[in-house]
Design a protein around this nucleic acid. Structure first.
Length: 504
RNA sequence: GGCCCGUUCGUCUAGGGGUUAGGACGCCAGGUUUUCAUCCUGGUAGCACGGGUUCGAAUCCCGUACGGGCUACCA
């Protein structure tokens, strides 16, 4: 049977980086095995829906290149792929479990539940669960006379809870952790069908995974504790459960807790693939795209956060990741997000990509109001790409390619510049004015310096500062030829004036 | 608190009874360069702790500590 996996986010906000990695692992397994990668929108909590979140999720997946084979807007034979549109499907299964004695109706109001928890707390039971010990004290179809429950059910007052069996070990195999066991007496009677007729995650999940013929569930570790409930439900329904794989969480750089929404601003990096404007909070959360990352580099960085190919190979294309991916090499422990390494991956990507392929994304990162010719920009890309980490860096680190320096490294100038050098600089200037190509000019200038017993370490750095403002950047003569003679001579004159103003 | 999961350089990880505990990021030093970056060479730094099992434990077992997750009519 061919593999079918799903990525099932909830549209309650932007997709975060942990979700991106979950999507990636699902995608990789599907592609490796010639299977199907499905996007399912888990929007069963109508109160937490956020406008634009579903579109954001899709746009993110598209940007990353993790395009679903099936999903809302992507077609597929197992739709609809939005749980809210499948609402009518779920009740019958919950109903079936009630009839089988595996579930029951409960009528407790939120107030009553809260009162129960308070009461239990007072008795010393920390965060009490609605479980076998408690359920006979509550208002439900197990405790109320049948006629009374029937009336309440008919009036739409009931919700459906799973009835956990008494003292039974439920085990399942997690492909990363091997065997995991829970005892049902530790498990609560989870709500599976809510008052509004919507299923909770647990019901919707197993029903849809079954109906959509999902073979492998790959999700975050936060779901590990409820997996026993899911396994039990598969058993109640007489369905075969899929294989489970729980992914270690991505932690804050401090290692304290899982990475969350606000950590980006706190630690200085994006936690979302795309920038997200939270209208409710009126906050803009940074995105990797807007920060100048290439999605391929991001994915390469993420795939190694919790998985390895079993070798020292680190720089991988998507094809390579697909080829090498395997669930058995997924790591068990949580991984911290390392900003430095993420930007190293992006730099590696830049260095290994052809200038022409970099043109479009670099253009996209261009500051507002700037206009640059493609051919020139491509030259700059070629000269700068091993010196930058992100797309925007071409304009900041390489600002001198686009405008004359606004200031000069005066410390370095003072160290080297003397007015007596002016005559030699004039000679160099005329060489530039007469030059026709970079290599020849370099030879001429260096030859001149040698012939006159002048130090390269004095004149060349000064010439560079005239062009760039500081001692950094690509080959000096390449810069000169990229800028063009007019611009070079203009900068030359302006710099010399500035240099003279500095010494004194 | 309870249950579940985890713990190898600062970080990401390899190694799963006998290894000088390997690689990558970062950092440091040297080389290359007019400079920066790249590149090359070298260095820094780690098996959480305590008991067992064993001729031998980073590796297997138990305990402890620490960390994480879950503990909603949220996902």
């Amino acid at each position: 049977m061919s593999i079918r996996v799903r990525f099932a986010p909830s549209p309650t906000g932007p997709l975060h980086i942990g979700g991106v990695r979950t999507a990636l692992y699902n995608y990789l397994l599907a592609k490796k095995e010639g299977g199907t990668f499905i996007l399912r929108i888990e929007d069963t909590d109508q109160t937490r829906l956020v406008e634009g979140a579903e579109d954001y999720i899709k746009e993110s997946l598209e940007w990353l290149g993790l395009t679903p084979d099936e999903g809302p807007g992507y077609g597929g034979d197992y739709g609809p792929y939005r749980q809210s549109e499948r609402k009518d499907l779920y009740a019958q299964y919950a109903q079936q479990m009630v009839e089988q004695g595996n579930a029951y109706y409960a009528f407790d109001t939120p107030d009553e539940l809260q009162a129960m928890r308070k009461e239990q707390e007072a008795l010393g039971h920390h965060s009490a669960k609605y479980d076998a010990r408690i359920r006979m004290q509550m208002r439900n179809s197990l405790t109320l006379p049948a006629e009374e429950s029937d009336i309440l059910i008919a009036a739409g007052e009931g919700i459906i809870r799973l009835k956990m069996p008494h003292d039974e070990d439920v085990s399942f195999v997690d492909l990363v952790r091997e065997k995991v066991t829970f005892n049902t007496s530790e498990l609560d009677d989870k709500v599976i069908l809510k008052k509004d007729g919507m299923p909770t995650y647990h019901l919707a999940n197993i029903v849809d995974d079954h109906l959509m013929k999902i073979t492998h569930v790959i999700r975050g570790e936060e779901w590990l504790s409820s997996t026993a409930h899911h396994v039990l439900m598969y058993r109640f329904m007489g369905w075969e459960a899929p294989h489970f794989t729980h992914l270690p969480l991505i932690l804050k750089p401090t290692g304290k807790g899982k990475l969350s929404k606000r950590d980006g601003a706190k630690f200085g990096f994006a936690v979302f693939p795309l920038e997200w404007h939270d209208k409710k909070e009126d906050v803009v959360y940074a995105g990797f795209r807007e920060d100048g990352f290439d999605p391929k580099a991001l994915l390469n960085f993420l795939v190694l956060l919790g998985w390895n190919p079993g070798s020292d190979e680190e720089i991988m294309t998507m094809e390579r990741m697909i080829k090498l991916f395997s669930l058995s090499k997924i790591v068990k422990s949580g991984a911290r997000f390392d900003v430095d390494k993420s930007s190293w991956f992006n730099q590696q990507y830049l260095m290994n990509t052809a200038d022409a392929d970099l043109l479009a994304p670099v253009k996209a990162a261009m500051p507002e109001g700037m206009t640059v010719e493609d051919s020139y920009l491509q030259t700059v890309i070629g000269l700068m790409k091993e010196r930058v980490h992100k797309y925007g860096d071409f304009y900041t680190e390489g600002s001198f390619f686009f405008s004359a320096p606004e200031s000069y490294d005066d410390k370095q100038v003072k160290k080297r510049y003397k007015p007596e050098q002016d005559a030699h600089f004039d000679a160099i200037k005329s060489m530039i004015a007469a030059s026709s190509d970079s290599a020849t000019l370099a030879d001429q200038v260096k030859g001149y310096l040698k012939d006159n017993e002048l130090k390269m370490g004095v004149y060349l750095p000064l010439l560079r500062i005239m062009m760039c403002g500081a001692l950094k950047g690509p080959d000096l003569f390449d810069i000169i030829f990229s800028l063009g003679k007019d611009e070079v001579l203009k900068r030359y004159d302006a710099a010399l004036v500035a240099f003279k103003g500095m010494e004194s």
